[in-house]
Design a protein around this nucleic acid. Sequence first.
DNA 1: AACGTAATCAACCGCAGCCGT
DNA 2: TACGGCTGCGGTTGATTACGT
Length: 251
Amino acid sequence: MDLRKGPWTVEEDLVLMNYIGSHGEGKWNSLARCAGLRRTGKSCRLRWMNYLRPDVRRGNITPEEQLLILELHSRWGNRWSKIAQRLPGRTDNEIKNYWRTRVQKHARHLRCDVNSKQFKDVMRYMWMPRLVERIRAASGSSATCVHQNVAAPSTREWPAEGSVELGQAKTSPDDSEMQLSSASESDDCFANRMQGCENGCDDWFQEADFTACWPQPLPSPGVCADDLGSLDLDGCGWEESLWSIEDVRGE
DNA sequence: AACGTAATCAACCGCAGCCGT
DNA sequence: TACGGCTGCGGTTGATTACGT
């Protein structure tokens, strides 16, 4: 049987949904055969998981979700499926796409490797506090619990096995994770730093936001790591509390 | 309006791990 | 133990859409 590739048609979607509705998911190869779909089992699974599943959330990634993605990626790296488990309704594919299109784009603009410590610091000490402010502004003080776990850390904690949840950003020690701790004076510093970076745009990730806040001229391509090593956030006291992923990761 | 470029996202591919035989 | 099939994951591609000139 010749297998179909490419975009799914409405008819194929209906066949797949109806079949799973009456037989359940799993055993994707036989499912594809029995349902009469000229698709591979992998293709059926992907279509279901990323698009047809009833609990798939569609629409823009919210600031809360953005915050969580940044946070979880800082711990787990490109473990998309694992990250997706913490964002109900979001798929690993969606998160992966988000990361590649939004986050990596800005790393490129900063001429910085997305995995470099410098870039992670920018995320943690600039973007994430800014996101927290946005969340807080949108929901009054209800984002405090998120805020407390994203602000520049002054202590490290290792809570009991748990998980990061939206609105309750606990972390767990599995995977040699770190704990982001309570808000500190560094956060105020960032709040100040972020002043003047407002552009009124919904997209917190607007390039102007952080390039304007970048404390030094951007380095030339190819010299990212070394040059950014001299990054100076002038007098915020952030260096004392600088949290290093490498410090606490056993990975 | 037409064209080129950038951004987005659905889907495919290769690989690794698991499990049954 | 070796093998094969299945599943899930992460990386990549390509089509479509949005945007700028």
